[in-house]
């Protein structure tokens, strides 16, 4: 049997599947931001998986969630290399940037990350997510969704309206939180510029 090179395989996969890792410190809402993206994928009838880092780190340690969005059945929800990264703090950027595939979309929370992305084969976007959340909607905890909004714009994988719909579903029992979270997504979406 002839061999199939890994790079050829990666190209096949890239056409139909996106693997995003959202990483930050525990308490920054990385698990929830991932859930919201997965729910948005459900709204568009796409295949999706969400997988958390889990264990002892509830607050303070590092946390991440991996979301795969695809047009067809998904293999493992745990992936070794990513086509997108949202880094909510510097530690996360250091840890996961080396695992980004060429061409990956990198969203950097520039409020907390003081360095630039030192790879030229990826597309980096700097979004002051914590500042936007703090100053414009008076809730720094919404930085996760500001960053997610930016990612939706940068990647174009799912519509902003689908993410807003996902808010309606995930906050169904706490409806008063819906406008704030939808606003965070929108602010992030509109603030996203490559550079």
């Amino acid at each position: 049997m002839s061999k199939l090179s890994l790079s050829a395989f990666t190209r096949i996969k890239n056409n139909m599947q996106t693997e995003l890792i959202i990483a930050g410190s525990g308490g920054q809402g990385v698990l929830f931001a991932g859930t919201l993206l997965a729910q948005a994928a459900v709204e568009e009838n796409k295949e999706t998986t969400w997988f958390p880092s889990y264990g002892a780190e509830i607050r303070g340690g590092t946390a991440n969630s991996t979301v795969v969005v695809s047009d067809e059945e998904i293999g493992s929800p745990v992936v070794n290399s990513f086509s997108a990264l949202i880094a909510l703090n510097e530690q996360s950027l250091d840890k996961f940037l080396p695992k980004a595939k060429p061409g990956a979309v990198i969203i950097v929370n520039s409020s907390l990350v003081n360095k630039k992305v030192d790879r030229s084969d990826v597309k980096a976007y700097y979004v002051p997510a914590s500042e936007i959340a703090d100053k414009q909607i008076n809730d720094i905890r919404a930085a996760n969704l500001v960053a997610l909004g930016a990612y939706l714009k940068a990647s174009g994988i799912l519509k902003l309206s689908s993410a807003k719909q996902a808010c309606d579903i995930l906050f169904a029992e706490r409806a008063k939180l819906i406008p704030l979270n939808q606003q965070a997504l929108e602010l992030g979406y509109n603030s996203c510029r490559q550079g």
Binding site: M1, S2, L4, F9, I12, E72, E73, G75, S76
Partner: peptide, 27 residues
Amino acid sequence: AEIIIVAFGISARVAYSTMRALRAAGK
């Protein structure tokens, strides 16, 4: 099939995605 992957549970998902990728390349 020239090669059959036998796997259960989570490993079967990986087997299926491997199969799809390799089938696409004619294997």
